[in-house]
Design a protein around this nucleic acid. Sequence first.
DNA 1: TCCATTAATAACTGTCAGGTCATTATAAAT
DNA 2: ATTTATAATGACCTGACAGTTATTAATGGA
Lengths: 225, 225
Amino acid sequence: MTTKATIIRPTPAAVEKKRARRRKEARPSELMAAAIELFIERGYAATRSEDIAARAGVSKATLYLYFEDKEALFKAVITQGVVPILDEGAHLIDEFTGDSSTLLRELLTRWQVRFSASPLCGIPKLMISEARNFPELALYHEKVAYAHARKILGRVIERGVARGEFRSLDQDAVVELLIAPLLMHFIWQHSMGASGCPTVDPTRYLDTHLDLILAGLATQPQPRS
Amino acid sequence: MTTKATIIRPTPAAVEKKRARRRKEARPSELMAAAIELFIERGYAATRSEDIAARAGVSKATLYLYFEDKEALFKAVITQGVVPILDEGAHLIDEFTGDSSTLLRELLTRWQVRFSASPLCGIPKLMISEARNFPELALYHEKVAYAHARKILGRVIERGVARGEFRSLDQDAVVELLIAPLLMHFIWQHSMGASGCPTVDPTRYLDTHLDLILAGLATQPQPRS
DNA sequence: TCCATTAATAACTGTCAGGTCATTATAAAT
DNA sequence: ATTTATAATGACCTGACAGTTATTAATGGA
């Protein structure tokens, strides 16, 4: 017999199961798109869940049909896939046969272009801002995103050193120094830049970065611009 | 005759004048020290004014004797003097007679050491996080801090180019690229780093940065490490 | 010692935002 | 058409926090 019990309200577990199913539909991605914009603009604490819902064109209560709470929404936003874009770079390495300077140039340019065209490039600013309020999330993000990018860049440097094209310097430091300007640029754009502070031209900036660092890495004097 | 009016409460203007006088005493700097720590840790919105007061060892109401509101305290913290430290670098340039590579090395090292030893190095992270919530403040900070640093670095690059030591590249971009790794390092330390993410060794990082960028800037092939 | 002035606070208030719930609209099924 | 299941929401509740005020403690000058 069916336990036609006195319980009318569904159990919390059932509610969460339903939420998990719903999270794969269209509505949640609208909410997440709205959330990522607002979180990047204002930060986590200063963003009201009602505003997120409003921007997605639904009511606040609807948001809570799809996400357990504000924090779950934040985590969903942060853990959105940067990995596929990073992996495009990894494939580039596998296929590439030319010199490592050119490879490095192509790799960084690719990443810059791909991230610039997506809201994902706002995530560094967001993660930096909220890291101390969400330490586990920071560690997770470091592991799946930053460490991944470092590994890929590390392979290029190793390749260059092995082929006698690059000097052998402190590997970890070189990799950080390759990423830092890109990251800094994204971060600046989404914070100071968005408040009216001057920003450098992205392509000139990246070109100069590559020009400098490739000359600095090279074992032989390069043709100079 | 003195207007012995019915007014018992002091006028808001008088209160503010009193606050301005008090702000030059010892208590406010304790409050600001506490505030800078907490703002950097948790961000502006997530920091409760009661916690700031508690860390400074006073009650919340006392805080409001010295600062009009939370925002005024935040602005006071941000506008704390980075300029003197930057100017140490400017003096270095004036006195220096050697080659520009060494000058650049000394300048960046000096800044790195001086900022690392002070809570001021947390301000970039704070400003980045809150720029969009305080646009005027972002512009002010850009003007008195970042633009100032850029100008000083610009002079060194010009000096190097004039003396035939440095290649002539996009001036603005080069300056950004000199600062970006330092800034990024401070920002990382105070966000991801503080959440347990691995951080590179500062001195190795700075050494490699200088090694790379000076080699990249140099007109003549340098002695290579 | 007394008074006047200033420093400091505990207790309070109003507002605002996260989260819930009873109810209504919408779609599906028979 | 009627029932059932699901999607969506307005109205509500509650805790937390910025900012205020009435009161007390400290200070100092005569």
